[in-house]
Amino acid sequence: MEAASAETATMVFVYGTLKRGFPNHPRLAAFDCPFAGAATTAAPASLVIGPYSVPFLLPAPTPSSGRLVSGELYSASPSALADLDLLEGTHLGVYERRRITVVVDGTSKEVEAEAYFANASYAEALWLRCGGEAAEIAEYTMEHAGRYVPPSGRSPGVSGLMDAVRAFLATAPPEN
């Protein structure tokens, strides 16, 4: 696969398992998406950890919720973007790709990028089930990734993660 050219490249903001050193980064590297820098969301967003220790980015559900979320920028060709959409299950309703503004770390430069958000059909329910504002994090860390279950370790089936999200949403949150 060719590296993205400046004319056709789409900047993609990743915030979880696709970051350098994290479990799914080799897949991102296989799509030949060059690293463009570390970045942080320009506006607060909600980042929560769902089933299998999978991170989910959500639009901040309330005016007081959300944090600036740390991640990385990559340049993706149209074919790499299609591969990422497949990886992120956009066709299954797991994630949806949305435009987001990020700030390149160490600068004041704002960049428009695409990011994978939890699908709107369940995003607010996931936020509530995870614990709302109390569960929001600013960064998916190696500690989170240490509990990550890769697709090979999950329930079988094409919609395994989506089935796990539905089951997670159907259960009561743990008592504190």
Rank of each mutant, 00 (worst) to 15 (best):
S79G: 09
Y95K: 03
V103C: 02
E143C: 07
A123Y: 05
P63G: 12
R129P: 08
E133D: 13
A115V: 04
E133R: 15
Y148T: 07
R129H: 06
G106H: 02
K109T: 15
D83H: 15
R154H: 03
E96N: 01
E88P: 11
G106T: 00
E143S: 11
A125H: 03
G89S: 02
V111I: 11
V149C: 03
T107H: 01
R97A: 13
P78A: 09
E114Q: 13
A134V: 13
V69L: 11
Y116G: 03
Y95C: 08
E136W: 01
Y116D: 00
D105N: 08
R154C: 08
A138Q: 07
A145P: 03
Y74S: 05
L73T: 06
M142D: 13
E114P: 12
I137R: 09
L92M: 11
G89M: 05
L126K: 05
G131V: 11
L84E: 05
D83R: 05
G93D: 00
V94P: 07
V104L: 00
V69W: 00
V111D: 04
L68A: 06
P63L: 10
E110K: 15
S77Q: 02
L84S: 02
I100N: 07
A120R: 14
V94Q: 06
E133Q: 14
S121A: 15
G132I: 08
E88M: 14
P78N: 02
L68H: 06
A76T: 01
